[in-house]
Simulated assay, not measured.
Amino acid sequence: MTHRLEKLSNILSRTSTAALYLAGIGLVLMTAFVAWQVFGRYVLNRSPSWTEPAAVMLMSWFIFLGAAVGVRENFHLGFDVLLYVLPEGSKAILRTASDVIVAAFGFGMVWYGCQLVSLTWASTLPSLGLPGGFDYLPVVAGGALILLFSLERMVQRFAGVGIDRDLNLEEVPDLNTVQEA
């Protein structure tokens, strides 16, 4: 069981890394598209019509892919203050509850995102010439990854794999000693 879990974790780690790289590439491309639009508008006096919708679509991709990576790396929002005052046994329960809520949210993104894709697929994005459903594909992909990564966290927790990182207040450097150095 542990070998299979480790294999799955490696695959999901590579998936997360690929999503992060794709999000980074999307951010760079979006910046280039916006720069081209500004150059076209103010230098060439002819603004390209495709740059703004393409930049917004890329922004959707890197936001949702980045959010999914944040779920896998445990950077999503949470109430860590409670974890400092509760006994050790209840921390895993709270973290699991958080993962269940995040998984439900990811499922909702997939479910309703697929409905949006199917409802808008027949329309066409005029400046890009793509089906309208392309606007909502990042919601579906990000939701699927969020669901998958939160399920991975729950399975690892139930298998006893140490995935939960506690913030150790004793490791936070004292500002007085940092300033003296």
Rank of each mutant, 00 (worst) to 15 (best):
M1T: 10
M1W: 08
H3P: 03
R4Q: 08
E6S: 10
N10H: 13
I11V: 15
S13Y: 14
S13M: 08
T15V: 13
T15E: 12
T15H: 09
T15A: 15
T17H: 14
L20I: 05
Y21P: 04
Y21H: 14
I25H: 08
L27D: 04
V28T: 08
L29Y: 13
M30G: 02
F33C: 06
V34H: 02
V34E: 11
A35C: 07
A35T: 10
G40F: 12
V43S: 07
N45C: 09
R46I: 05
P48M: 10
S49C: 01
T51W: 06
T51Y: 05
E52Y: 15
P53W: 07
A55G: 08
V56M: 14
V56A: 14
M57K: 02
L58K: 06
S60E: 11
F62W: 13
I63H: 09
F64E: 01
G66K: 10
G66H: 07
A67G: 14
A68M: 07
A68F: 10
A68N: 09
A68K: 04
V69C: 12
V69T: 14
G70C: 10
V71I: 12
R72W: 05
R72T: 08
E73D: 06
E73Q: 15
N74C: 04
N74Q: 12
F75S: 05
H76E: 10
G78Y: 09
F79W: 04
D80T: 14
V81S: 11
L82T: 02
L83A: 00
L83Q: 12
Y84H: 14
Y84R: 09
L86G: 10
E88S: 07
G89F: 13
S90F: 14
S90K: 15
S90W: 15
A92N: 10
L94P: 09
T96P: 02
T96S: 12
S98T: 12
D99E: 12
V100E: 05
V100C: 12
I101P: 05
V102C: 02
A103P: 00
A103E: 00
G106M: 03
F107A: 06
G108A: 06
G108Q: 01
M109E: 00
V110F: 04
W111G: 00
Y112L: 05
G113V: 03
C114I: 08
Q115T: 08
Q115L: 06
L116T: 14
V117W: 04
L119W: 11
L119N: 14
T120Y: 13
W121K: 02
A122K: 11
S123E: 11
T124P: 06
L125Q: 08
L128Y: 06
G129R: 07
L130Q: 03
P131C: 08
G132N: 07
D135W: 10
D135C: 05
D135G: 09
L137W: 06
V139D: 01
V140Q: 02
G142T: 07
G143A: 08
G143L: 03
A144G: 12
L145Q: 00
I146Y: 01
F149K: 01
E152T: 03
M154N: 02
M154C: 03
Q156A: 06
Q156C: 11
R157I: 01
A159W: 13
I163F: 00
I163R: 00
D164L: 04
R165W: 11
N168M: 05
N168Q: 09
L169T: 05
L169C: 02
E171D: 08
V172D: 01
N176D: 03
N176S: 13
T177M: 07
